Amino acid sequence: MVRIIITEDLGMTKICAKMVPKNLAPKQRETRKNVAPDMLELREINPELLNRVITGGESFFFFFQYDPQTKRQSSQWCSNGSPRPKKARMSKSKVKCMLVCFFDSKGIVHKEWVPPGQTVIQYYYKEILERLHKRVLRVLVNIAYDWILHHNNVPSRTALVKTAVKGHHFQTTQDAQKAVTRVLEDITEDEFQTCYHQRQKRWRKSVQSGGNYFEGDNTKLD
């Protein structure tokens, strides 16, 4: 009876909590609330604003390596009475790779894999940004001296890539990196455009939510 009243009469539903990175402090919420309308105003003044933005960041990918040689492939010719060859069972080994990737509203601008053992400290990241700058000068001449860097861990793009390679086992780290690169290259320009258009919606939602997290809230825009 109580359930009927709650669900049918009151129209309520029971939903799980949305996991968020952290609880925002009042100052952080205020900053989000104030910055969002400023960005919307700048976008209104300059419709081409987002075309000057290059978004990028680093993301970890975890892969499983496996032994490429099957039991049958390891067979050997032996004389009668010879002991049977032994082959140690290899367990899957988990390999972690870091990708640093930058993209604009049309596609990937620059990407590179961080060498194994390399810690991404400020000096190393400065070198990456210098290589990005040279790349922009070479391939994005129209915004070469007027582009804006938006540093972010690009969750929507990395999630798409991680989903595409999830469950696959690779013989070498290089094979895994090639697989990720192929997925990145297959992302269409329309998908990048959609990603950039969603930014404007997120700015409006940020204003309406008072700077709070709104993922999963089904916020309706005015």
Rank of each mutant, 00 (worst) to 15 (best):
residue 83 P to K: 08
residue 9 D to S: 14
residue 49 L to M: 09
residue 126 K to G: 13
residue 56 G to K: 01
residue 104 D to P: 02
residue 173 T to F: 04
residue 103 F to V: 03
residue 8 E to N: 15
residue 79 S to C: 14
residue 1 M to P: 00
residue 35 V to E: 00
residue 15 I to V: 14
residue 215 E to R: 06
residue 19 M to A: 12
residue 200 Q to V: 15
residue 124 Y to A: 11
residue 36 A to T: 00
residue 219 T to Q: 06
residue 79 S to R: 09
residue 75 S to W: 09
residue 19 M to H: 12
residue 28 Q to K: 01
residue 147 W to K: 02
residue 215 E to G: 13
residue 221 L to Y: 06
residue 37 P to N: 07
residue 208 Q to G: 02
residue 156 S to D: 05
residue 111 K to A: 06
residue 31 T to Y: 01
residue 184 L to Q: 06
residue 28 Q to F: 01
residue 151 H to R: 09
residue 60 F to I: 12
residue 64 F to C: 07
residue 211 G to L: 00
residue 104 D to R: 03
residue 52 R to Q: 10
residue 169 H to W: 11
residue 121 I to M: 11
residue 199 R to K: 07
residue 218 N to S: 12
residue 112 E to G: 08
residue 71 K to V: 14
residue 80 N to G: 08
residue 74 S to T: 10
residue 131 R to N: 08
residue 95 V to C: 02
residue 110 H to D: 09
residue 21 P to M: 09
residue 2 V to W: 04
residue 14 K to R: 08
residue 5 I to G: 05
residue 2 V to M: 04
residue 151 H to D: 07
residue 69 Q to L: 15
residue 211 G to N: 00
residue 190 D to I: 10
residue 39 M to L: 15
residue 131 R to P: 05
residue 131 R to I: 12
residue 121 I to W: 10
residue 20 V to C: 09
residue 24 L to A: 06
residue 218 N to L: 10
residue 22 K to R: 13
residue 208 Q to W: 00
residue 108 I to Q: 02
residue 174 Q to E: 11
residue 183 V to W: 01
residue 74 S to V: 12
residue 222 D to F: 07
residue 121 I to S: 10
residue 108 I to S: 03
residue 12 M to G: 04
residue 132 L to T: 04
residue 12 M to Q: 06
residue 93 S to G: 10
residue 74 S to D: 09
residue 212 N to R: 02
residue 6 I to H: 05
residue 83 P to D: 05
residue 160 L to Y: 07
residue 30 E to L: 02
residue 60 F to D: 09
residue 53 V to I: 15
residue 102 F to I: 03
residue 141 V to N: 05
residue 204 R to H: 05
residue 87 K to E: 07
residue 138 R to E: 11
residue 126 K to H: 11
residue 216 G to Q: 10
residue 167 G to L: 13
residue 94 K to I: 14
residue 150 H to P: 01
residue 174 Q to R: 11
residue 217 D to I: 10
residue 2 V to K: 02
residue 199 R to N: 04
residue 124 Y to M: 05
residue 46 N to I: 12
residue 185 E to S: 08
residue 58 E to G: 03
residue 210 G to L: 00
residue 173 T to Y: 05
residue 73 Q to M: 13
residue 179 A to Q: 07
residue 81 G to E: 09
residue 13 T to D: 14
residue 35 V to R: 02
residue 166 K to A: 14
residue 14 K to M: 13
residue 101 C to K: 00
residue 66 Y to M: 11
residue 122 Q to V: 15
residue 90 M to S: 09
residue 51 N to H: 08
residue 44 E to P: 05
residue 209 S to A: 06
residue 190 D to N: 03
residue 215 E to V: 14
residue 40 L to H: 02
residue 215 E to Q: 12
residue 199 R to V: 04
residue 181 T to W: 01
residue 28 Q to L: 10
residue 120 V to K: 03
residue 2 V to G: 00
residue 213 Y to W: 06
residue 124 Y to T: 09
residue 86 K to T: 11
residue 12 M to W: 11
residue 86 K to A: 10
residue 193 Q to R: 06
residue 22 K to Y: 14
residue 113 W to R: 02
residue 182 R to M: 08
residue 35 V to L: 00
residue 68 P to C: 13
residue 160 L to K: 04
residue 119 T to R: 15
residue 219 T to H: 05
residue 154 V to A: 12
